[in-house]
Amino acid sequence: MDLLGAAAVALALTVALAQAASRLLTRVAAAWPVLVLIGLALAVGLACLRVRGSRRHRADSERLARLRITLSELDAMDDQQFEYALRDLLVRDGWAARKVGGGGDQAADVIGVLIPLGRIVVQAKHTRVGGKVGSSVMYEVKGTAGPAHKADHAVVVTNGSFTRDAMAWGVRHGVHWIDRDRLDQWAHKGRALHELLGLPARRSRLPWRRAA
Protein backbone atom coordinates (compact mmCIF):
# COMPACT_ATOMS: atom_id res chain seq x y z
CA MET A 1 0.00 0.00 0.00
CA ASP A 2 2.84 2.36 0.77
CA LEU A 3 4.33 1.89 -2.68
CA LEU A 4 0.96 2.43 -4.32
CA GLY A 5 0.43 5.58 -2.27
CA ALA A 6 3.80 6.98 -3.19
CA ALA A 7 3.19 6.23 -6.84
CA ALA A 8 -0.17 7.96 -6.70
CA VAL A 9 1.39 11.07 -5.12
CA ALA A 10 4.11 11.13 -7.73
CA LEU A 11 1.58 10.81 -10.52
CA ALA A 12 -0.53 13.59 -9.06
CA LEU A 13 2.51 15.89 -8.86
CA THR A 14 3.48 15.08 -12.44
CA VAL A 15 -0.01 15.87 -13.67
CA ALA A 16 -0.08 19.12 -11.69
CA LEU A 17 3.30 20.21 -13.08
CA ALA A 18 2.23 19.36 -16.60
CA GLN A 19 -0.94 21.37 -16.21
CA ALA A 20 0.98 24.34 -14.78
CA ALA A 21 3.47 24.21 -17.64
CA SER A 22 0.62 24.03 -20.16
CA ARG A 23 -1.08 27.07 -18.63
CA LEU A 24 2.23 28.98 -18.67
CA LEU A 25 2.85 28.17 -22.32
CA THR A 26 -0.69 29.22 -23.16
CA ARG A 27 -0.19 32.57 -21.43
CA VAL A 28 3.16 33.13 -23.13
CA ALA A 29 1.65 32.28 -26.51
CA ALA A 30 -1.14 34.75 -25.87
CA ALA A 31 1.24 37.46 -24.75
CA TRP A 32 3.92 37.06 -27.46
CA PRO A 33 2.98 40.30 -29.27
CA VAL A 34 3.54 42.21 -26.04
CA LEU A 35 6.88 40.47 -25.47
CA VAL A 36 7.95 41.26 -29.02
CA LEU A 37 7.08 44.92 -28.52
CA ILE A 38 9.02 45.02 -25.26
CA GLY A 39 12.01 43.45 -27.00
CA LEU A 40 11.84 45.96 -29.85
CA ALA A 41 11.57 48.85 -27.40
CA LEU A 42 14.65 47.62 -25.54
CA ALA A 43 16.58 47.22 -28.80
CA VAL A 44 15.64 50.73 -29.94
CA GLY A 45 16.59 52.15 -26.54
CA LEU A 46 20.01 50.48 -26.63
CA ALA A 47 20.57 51.67 -30.19
CA CYS A 48 19.74 55.25 -29.17
CA LEU A 49 22.14 55.06 -26.24
CA ARG A 50 24.91 53.80 -28.51
CA VAL A 51 24.30 56.53 -31.07
CA ARG A 52 24.23 59.18 -28.35
CA GLY A 53 27.44 57.81 -26.82
CA SER A 54 29.10 57.71 -30.23
CA ARG A 55 28.12 61.31 -30.92
CA ARG A 56 29.36 62.41 -27.53
CA HIS A 57 32.66 60.59 -28.06
CA ARG A 58 33.03 62.16 -31.52
CA ALA A 59 32.28 65.61 -30.13
CA ASP A 60 34.81 65.12 -27.32
CA SER A 61 37.42 63.92 -29.81
CA GLU A 62 36.82 66.91 -32.07
CA ARG A 63 37.00 69.27 -29.10
CA LEU A 64 40.28 67.78 -27.91
CA ALA A 65 41.71 67.79 -31.43
CA ARG A 66 41.31 71.59 -31.38
CA LEU A 67 42.55 71.95 -27.82
CA ARG A 68 44.90 74.86 -27.27
CA ILE A 69 45.89 76.17 -23.84
CA THR A 70 47.86 79.36 -23.35
CA LEU A 71 50.63 79.76 -20.80
CA SER A 72 48.60 82.33 -18.90
CA GLU A 73 45.74 79.83 -18.62
CA LEU A 74 48.12 77.16 -17.38
CA ASP A 75 49.64 79.57 -14.86
CA ALA A 76 46.18 80.30 -13.43
CA MET A 77 45.46 76.61 -12.78
CA ASP A 78 45.96 74.78 -9.50
CA ASP A 79 47.95 71.54 -9.32
CA GLN A 80 44.96 69.29 -10.05
CA GLN A 81 43.77 71.37 -12.98
CA PHE A 82 47.29 71.38 -14.40
CA GLU A 83 47.44 67.58 -14.26
CA TYR A 84 44.07 67.24 -15.99
CA ALA A 85 45.21 69.69 -18.66
CA LEU A 86 48.31 67.60 -19.36
CA ARG A 87 46.12 64.50 -19.62
CA ASP A 88 43.86 66.24 -22.15
CA LEU A 89 46.85 67.36 -24.18
CA LEU A 90 48.12 63.79 -24.35
CA VAL A 91 44.68 62.59 -25.46
CA ARG A 92 44.71 65.30 -28.12
CA ASP A 93 48.00 63.88 -29.38
CA GLY A 94 46.53 60.38 -29.67
CA TRP A 95 47.57 58.85 -26.35
CA ALA A 96 45.14 56.80 -24.26
CA ALA A 97 45.88 58.80 -21.12
CA ARG A 98 44.54 58.96 -17.59
CA LYS A 99 45.28 61.10 -14.56
CA VAL A 100 46.70 59.09 -11.68
CA GLY A 101 48.32 61.76 -9.50
CA GLY A 102 47.51 61.83 -5.80
CA GLY A 103 48.77 60.42 -2.55
CA GLY A 104 51.30 57.65 -3.17
CA ASP A 105 51.42 58.29 -6.92
CA GLN A 106 55.12 57.34 -7.04
CA ALA A 107 56.14 60.30 -9.20
CA ALA A 108 53.41 59.77 -11.82
CA ASP A 109 50.60 62.26 -12.36
CA VAL A 110 49.53 61.14 -15.83
CA ILE A 111 50.12 57.83 -17.62
CA GLY A 112 49.51 57.33 -21.34
CA VAL A 113 49.84 54.61 -23.94
CA LEU A 114 50.28 55.08 -27.69
CA ILE A 115 51.16 52.25 -30.04
CA PRO A 116 53.88 51.96 -31.27
CA LEU A 117 55.53 54.48 -28.93
CA GLY A 118 54.68 52.51 -25.79
CA ARG A 119 53.91 53.80 -22.31
CA ILE A 120 54.69 57.28 -20.98
CA VAL A 121 54.75 58.61 -17.42
CA VAL A 122 54.30 62.34 -16.85
CA GLN A 123 55.24 64.08 -13.62
CA ALA A 124 53.62 67.53 -13.40
CA LYS A 125 55.29 70.38 -11.55
CA HIS A 126 53.03 73.41 -11.47
CA THR A 127 54.88 76.37 -10.05
CA ARG A 128 54.83 80.12 -9.93
CA VAL A 129 56.19 81.91 -12.97
CA GLY A 130 59.96 81.97 -12.63
CA GLY A 131 60.03 78.91 -10.36
CA LYS A 132 62.64 76.26 -11.08
CA VAL A 133 62.54 72.46 -10.84
CA GLY A 134 65.70 70.86 -9.51
CA SER A 135 67.52 67.57 -10.07
CA SER A 136 65.80 65.80 -7.16
CA VAL A 137 62.61 65.53 -9.24
CA MET A 138 64.57 63.86 -12.03
CA TYR A 139 66.03 61.35 -9.57
CA GLU A 140 62.58 60.49 -8.25
CA VAL A 141 61.05 60.02 -11.69
CA LYS A 142 63.90 57.84 -12.90
CA GLY A 143 63.59 55.69 -9.80
CA THR A 144 59.90 54.90 -10.30
CA ALA A 145 59.03 55.25 -14.01
CA GLY A 146 60.39 51.86 -15.02
CA PRO A 147 60.16 49.73 -11.86
CA ALA A 148 56.79 51.01 -10.59
CA HIS A 149 54.97 52.05 -13.79
CA LYS A 150 56.62 49.92 -16.52
CA ALA A 151 57.13 53.04 -18.59
CA ASP A 152 59.02 53.29 -21.87
CA HIS A 153 59.30 57.08 -21.57
CA ALA A 154 59.35 59.48 -18.63
CA VAL A 155 58.89 63.24 -18.74
CA VAL A 156 58.69 66.04 -16.20
CA VAL A 157 56.50 68.99 -17.22
CA THR A 158 56.52 72.41 -15.59
CA ASN A 159 55.11 75.82 -16.39
CA GLY A 160 58.33 77.20 -14.93
CA SER A 161 61.87 76.15 -15.78
CA PHE A 162 64.55 73.64 -14.80
CA THR A 163 67.94 74.14 -13.28
CA ARG A 164 70.85 73.52 -15.60
CA ASP A 165 71.89 70.47 -13.59
CA ALA A 166 68.36 69.00 -13.78
CA MET A 167 68.24 69.33 -17.57
CA ALA A 168 71.71 67.86 -18.03
CA TRP A 169 70.98 64.98 -15.64
CA GLY A 170 67.70 64.23 -17.43
CA VAL A 171 69.43 64.07 -20.81
CA ARG A 172 72.10 61.71 -19.48
CA HIS A 173 69.63 59.37 -17.78
CA GLY A 174 66.71 59.30 -20.18
CA VAL A 175 64.26 61.54 -18.31
CA HIS A 176 62.71 64.06 -20.70
CA TRP A 177 61.75 67.55 -19.62
CA ILE A 178 59.24 70.15 -20.79
CA ASP A 179 59.96 73.66 -19.60
CA ARG A 180 57.92 76.80 -20.17
CA ASP A 181 59.07 77.34 -23.75
CA ARG A 182 58.45 73.74 -24.75
CA LEU A 183 55.11 73.78 -22.92
CA ASP A 184 54.03 76.70 -25.08
CA GLN A 185 54.94 74.70 -28.19
CA TRP A 186 52.96 71.71 -26.92
CA ALA A 187 49.91 73.26 -25.26
CA HIS A 188 49.38 76.48 -27.19
CA LYS A 189 50.87 75.93 -30.62
CA GLY A 190 49.61 72.35 -30.93
CA ARG A 191 52.81 70.44 -31.52
CA ALA A 192 52.49 66.79 -30.43
CA LEU A 193 54.50 65.87 -27.36
CA HIS A 194 56.16 62.84 -28.95
CA GLU A 195 57.27 64.98 -31.88
CA LEU A 196 58.52 67.71 -29.56
CA LEU A 197 60.58 65.20 -27.57
CA GLY A 198 61.63 63.15 -30.59
CA LEU A 199 60.36 59.90 -29.12
CA PRO A 200 61.20 56.88 -31.30
CA ALA A 201 58.42 55.31 -33.36
CA ARG A 202 58.85 52.00 -31.59
CA ARG A 203 59.33 50.87 -28.01
CA SER A 204 62.75 51.60 -26.62
CA ARG A 205 64.48 50.16 -23.60
CA LEU A 206 65.11 52.76 -20.93
CA PRO A 207 68.43 52.91 -19.06
CA TRP A 208 66.82 51.43 -15.93
CA ARG A 209 65.51 48.49 -18.00
CA ARG A 210 68.92 47.80 -19.49
CA ALA A 211 70.35 47.73 -16.00
CA ALA A 212 67.65 45.33 -14.72
Results as ranks from 00 to 15, higher is better:
residue 65 A to D: 00
residue 92 R to M: 01
residue 14 T to C: 09
residue 64 L to P: 01
residue 113 V to R: 15
residue 180 R to I: 03
residue 66 R to A: 13
residue 140 E to N: 11
residue 100 V to M: 01
residue 162 F to N: 11
residue 90 L to T: 11
residue 151 A to C: 11
residue 33 P to M: 08
residue 51 V to C: 14
residue 178 I to G: 00
residue 117 L to S: 10
residue 60 D to K: 14
residue 145 A to V: 02
residue 94 G to L: 10
residue 77 M to L: 15
residue 191 R to G: 04
residue 188 H to Y: 11
residue 22 S to K: 09
residue 80 Q to D: 09
residue 25 L to I: 06
residue 97 A to S: 01
residue 129 V to R: 13
residue 81 Q to L: 06
residue 102 G to R: 07
residue 106 Q to M: 03
residue 16 A to R: 13
residue 51 V to P: 09
residue 178 I to D: 02
residue 111 I to R: 04
residue 67 L to T: 02
residue 191 R to E: 14
residue 160 G to N: 03
residue 64 L to A: 07
residue 97 A to W: 06
residue 101 G to E: 07
residue 47 A to I: 04
residue 55 R to M: 15
residue 62 E to H: 13
residue 188 H to D: 10
residue 42 L to Y: 07
residue 137 V to D: 11
residue 184 D to T: 12
residue 179 D to R: 05
residue 104 G to Y: 00
residue 196 L to P: 07
residue 142 K to W: 09
residue 36 V to R: 14
residue 19 Q to E: 12
residue 11 L to N: 06
residue 54 S to N: 15
residue 181 D to S: 08
residue 152 D to C: 13
residue 72 S to Y: 02
residue 209 R to W: 14
residue 123 Q to C: 03
residue 112 G to W: 00
residue 31 A to L: 13
residue 170 G to C: 00
residue 165 D to G: 12
residue 154 A to Y: 00
residue 200 P to T: 13
residue 70 T to N: 06
residue 64 L to I: 01
residue 52 R to T: 15
